[in-house]
Design a protein around this nucleic acid. Sequence first.
RNA 1: GGUCCUAUGGUCAAGCGGUUAAGACACCGCCCUUUCACGGCGGUAACCCGGGUUCGAUUCCCGGUAGGAUCACCA
Length: 591
Amino acid sequence: MDYNKLAELLFPQIDKTPEDYEAMFPQRANAEGGAIITRLGPSPTGFIHLGNLYGAFVDERLAHQSKAEDGTPGTFYLRIEDTDDKRYVEGAVDTVINSLKFFDINFDEGAGCGPAAEDGEPTDSGDYGPYYQSQRGPIYQAFVKHLVSQGKAYPCFLTEEELAEIRAQQEAAKETTGIYGKYAEKSRNLSYEEIEANINAGKPYVVRLKSKGNAISPENCCMENGATCQGNSGNVTYQNRDGVMYIIVNDAVRGEVAMPSNDQDVVILKATGIPTYHFAHVIDDHLMRTTHVVRGEEWLMSLPIHVELFEALRFQLPTYCHTAVLMKLDDETGNKRKLSKRKDPELSLDYYRQEGYHPQAVKEYLMTILNSDFEEWRMANPDADLDEFTFTTEKMSSAGALFDLNKLNDISKDVLLKIPADELADFMLEWAREFKPKAVPLLEDKEYLTKILNIGRDDAKPRKDLIYAKQIFDFISYFYDDYFFIEEQIPEQVSDEDAKEILKRYLETYDHSDDQSQWFEKIRTITADLGYAVKPKDYKKHPDEYKGSVAHVSTVIRIAVMGRSQSPDVWTIQQILGEDRVRARISELIG
RNA sequence: GGUCCUAUGGUCAAGCGGUUAAGACACCGCCCUUUCACGGCGGUAACCCGGGUUCGAUUCCCGGUAGGAUCACCA
């Protein structure tokens, strides 16, 4: 078979060679001396979930933390993986970029990363484009053509029915499914004339890799059992394990990973002329000079395919970082399972936006599950910027981490405490504009809101009860008349008459200009006059001698003014609320 | 089913042949306190099972078990 002739028959319109592309996309200047080049390759649905964010975070940190010899940092770029013919969602690239920007994750180059054009359309930036796989057709085809001309790939005309039949046969015989070994022979052995006839007849076809298989044989490799040898692409070791060729790859997060080498004649070019993920990954990450490929664990099993592809093309293998998938405890089965888009709203980044989690809190949380020594570092450096932490792939867990909302909330409390109240007020308003529009006019009084958010923050032991916007709003809602209502019952120790009496006397003696001790002194007086214990301990010791304690009296006032029994300090709240509101609310309750 | 990954308290996790087996979150109790939150003190709670190797295994090896991942012209 004349493979050159075959390549020409299949790709007459392709005139560029791999060498041309190698020259067009030379090694990156900053890749020398340790700078890391990473990429994010989302599909163009624009849907970014927590898992994507998790990976993007790793990519970003790895690239921007690393430095070339001359001090320039690594590069983190955005490539859109739209090889699937599923519909392209309008504005998806913008969505991706903006979703990540919300978390301070910024790209250096790639799709949509250039300055906006005059008509407002986003442009791409960088010298290694195009950054959309759908626009890279000729590039992929040039490499496929090259492989065909070397006899390393071939066209396959198997129809869906034939494929299904083979599959059924294999399943019945309990064999591995797919096109490999004897099942590949039919297509592999097609003569030039047969192929030409098929093409002239307009039959659709795919291009498959001609796998070298993984059996140890004289023409393949004749290593002794257990012996190893180095691969051409670097970073790969082959080993004969009882007649089966294994690949051993050093994964940055998992260490050495061993598995049987690929024996499937995988599809590299679909009937549409568009490559599969496997092929696009190999070509793109090589040509765009990616040094570290960060991706989910679900890709680990296709590593042998990628290794064979890298070897066949004589490309250098990148460093792989297969990250663990995010898990969750299933309510029904009680087992761990992968977070799913359909069942788990907390997977969607929108969930955190709706609830009003601060991006910094989500980042901080992600970092704690990403690197096990982060929490320790954070305790030692409570005020340091997140970027000062040195992130390492070695410290990443290879088991799936369970998503823990409790932990997120705990971290969020600390994060929000460090954000100045007026910034938090802006954050609340922004959140409300999107998710609680009715409250916007109220929250627009920034001075008022800032005062509220600032309660108890400057103390030596600052309050930590602010977690996320939605929760915060509920927490402070009584400051706004529209949302104020009596939510709780008065304590059982206090009779209805006493409650009225307490409030009546409170209102009579109320002086808005009292300082906190004067104010509390008056409550003590009321407490004592009505037969309640001024010191809660007295009541605790001698419950028979008192109706209740000052705590219960205070609770009545709390409920009158705030509608609830739990809140920060009453005096402070009243000062913010203003005299009119306080008086009005109490009068209202007295009736 | 084949292949691969993983296995320390409820959760996240230190540990990398000899430890009273850290820490954080959650939970419980006490203290502080006019409630709550914060803070302080204390507490419950773990090395999946079985074989080896070794003077000694949570740690190394093998087997089992469990959970997860993956087996497309989807990524």
